[in-house]
Amino acid sequence: MSILRLFHKKKSKQIAKDRLKILLISDRVNCSPEMMELIKHDIALVISKYMKIDSDSMDIQISKTAKSGRNKLPVLYANIPIIDLNNCRIS
């Protein structure tokens, strides 16, 4: 496994690029980490009305949609793990 991982190791430039992309979007929209926490909390609250989710490991971030450039619209991306889909209270 470790040998395989050695060959598939992500190049550091790719890590830098990925980090920057996320970083710059939150810099540009001037969205503070506290505000992101609040948004995350509220989203969790709304979703948990309908299904059981793992709010501790959910993740939200602002990233870009289409190709890069200065004028592309950012999107809010949320990754919310669902614990139990069977008990959805949608009626």
Binding site: K11, S12, K13, Q14, A16, K17, R70, N71
Partner: peptide, 17 residues
């Protein structure tokens, strides 16, 4: 850059736009 340990100029231009 060749080793993949520095962003290319294209990367930088792409990010800054």
């Amino acid at each position: 850059v060749r080793r993949g340990d520095m962003m290319t100029v294209e990367d930088v231009v792409d990010i800054l736009g």
